[in-house]
């Protein structure tokens, strides 16, 4: 159970819990935020995956775990958008259609959470969904790392690439040819696609966001590229632009229902902003490929952790629940620590090479 005072629990009902958490809890959230930020700054993804499961395992009710996770995503999206203040090549028409679709999807996800909570099933269902999500993405990332594929996948540096060398993926071309339900819209990069395809993609990723409290970019960006045919630079910027709005509206709706706990979000965001600077700086020094395998392993450990925690909750074992929480936070700490350690050792090695030897 959360270590906050009983007063914080009653304040939660009104949707405001301004630092109602104990100092130890705030310190824990700052530390966890730092770890999440390092991962996000380094890999460009993986922050929000861990927040909601950790909150669930700490005993927060599902609407608070998901709502606060979403508010955290909103905050980090605002910071990321400000960093890429020209946002590369945003397609505002695409962004606008996606904001509408994503927001409705988030609201559907949110209503589902509250409905399941009224049945006492929300924690269990969301935990199972996370086991599948973390396990699936963990397997994908680990397989990529073992194959030795170069690069970090889609990241925000791609926002600066030129549209002229872009080629629409075959699957997107097929979708554009097959689905011709009006209205058809023309997007940047000369992409002509049905607005319904865009809305469907946005809605589906919105439901994921609203139900799990994740940013959804890890699905929305590949979906924009492979299902809609959006050029990568446009996908990066437009995704950021639209999640600020849909995440903000989603957080607002969760907040109205008492799902956003400022005592969680504020320290998490603070820690993560610092961590993201460390993670980003590390990308210039450390090769991501070497650590990618650890990242995949961390996601897989996270899947196992959530599973253990959920079994513990089901059979009423505090030990298993605690073990799950320790594993999810511990695996994130190990990977973030690996990034920092490798950065420091690389810097030391560089400095030693620069020191002239006395002949």
């Amino acid at each position: 159970m959360p270590a906050s005072s009983p007063a914080a629990v009653t304040v939660l009902d009104s949707g405001l819990s301004l630092f109602g958490s104990s100092p130890e809890l705030i310190a824990l959230f700052v530390g966890f935020g730092l770890v999440v930020g390092i991962l996000f700054g380094f890999f460009g993804m993986g922050g929000s995956f861990l927040v909601t499961p950790a909150l669930l395992m700490m005993g927060y009710p599902a609407p608070v775990a998901v709502g606060s996770g979403m508010a955290f995503v909103f905050g980090t999206a605002v910071i990321a958008s400000l960093k890429h203040h020209d946002l590369g090549q945003v397609d505002y028409k695409l962004g606008g259609i996606m904001i509408a679709g994503t927001t409705v999807g988030i609201e559907v996800g949110r209503v589902s959470v509250y409905y399941l909570e009224s049945l006492g099933l929300a924690g269990g269902v969301i935990s199972v969904a996370y086991v599948l999500l973390l396990g699936g993405i963990g397997l994908m990332v680990t397989r990529e790392a073992l194959k030795g594929d170069g690069g970090r996948g889609i990241d925000h540096e791609d926002a600066d690439r030129d549209l002229s060398d872009y080629e629409i993926p075959a699957i997107a071309k097929r979708i554009q040819k097959t689905v011709r339900i009006p209205p058809m819209v023309t997007l940047r990069g000369d992409v002509r696609v049905s607005a319904w395809v865009i809305t469907a993609v946005a809605f589906a990723t919105g439901v994921l966001s609203g139900f799990l409290g994740v940013g959804g970019g890890f699905i929305r960006m590949p979906a924009m590229i492979y299902a809609i045919g959006v050029p990568v630079p446009v996908a990066v910027g437009t995704d950021l632009f639209e999640i600020v709005f849909s995440g903000g509206i989603g957080s607002y709706l969760y907040g109205q229902g008492g799902g956003v706990d400022l005592g969680i979000v504020a320290p998490l965001l603070f820690g993560s902003a610092l961590g993201a600077r460390i993670g980003s700086a590390a990308t210039a020094i450390v090769d991501a490929d070497g650590i990618k395998g650890y990242f995949g392993g961390m996601l897989l450990a996270g899947a196992v952790a959530v599973g253990i925690g959920e079994v513990g909750s089901y059979v009423g074992s505090d030990l298993l629940e605690t073990a799950g929480l320790v594993l999810v936070i511990g695996s994130a700490v190990v990977v973030a620590g690996a990034i920092v350690y490798t950065t420091v050792t690389s810097l030391r090695a560089t400095r030693h090479r620069q020191i002239p030897t006395a002949d």
Binding site: G75, E107, G248, Y252, Q256
Partner: peptide, 30 residues
Amino acid sequence: MAGLEIPTWDPETAILIGSILIEAVVLYVG
């Protein structure tokens, strides 16, 4: 499924989300 909600003006929630927004801006600038 229970009705989807349309955001309505609620000062407390607006302050809550607004403070997260302000914190994000401050952290970016700082």
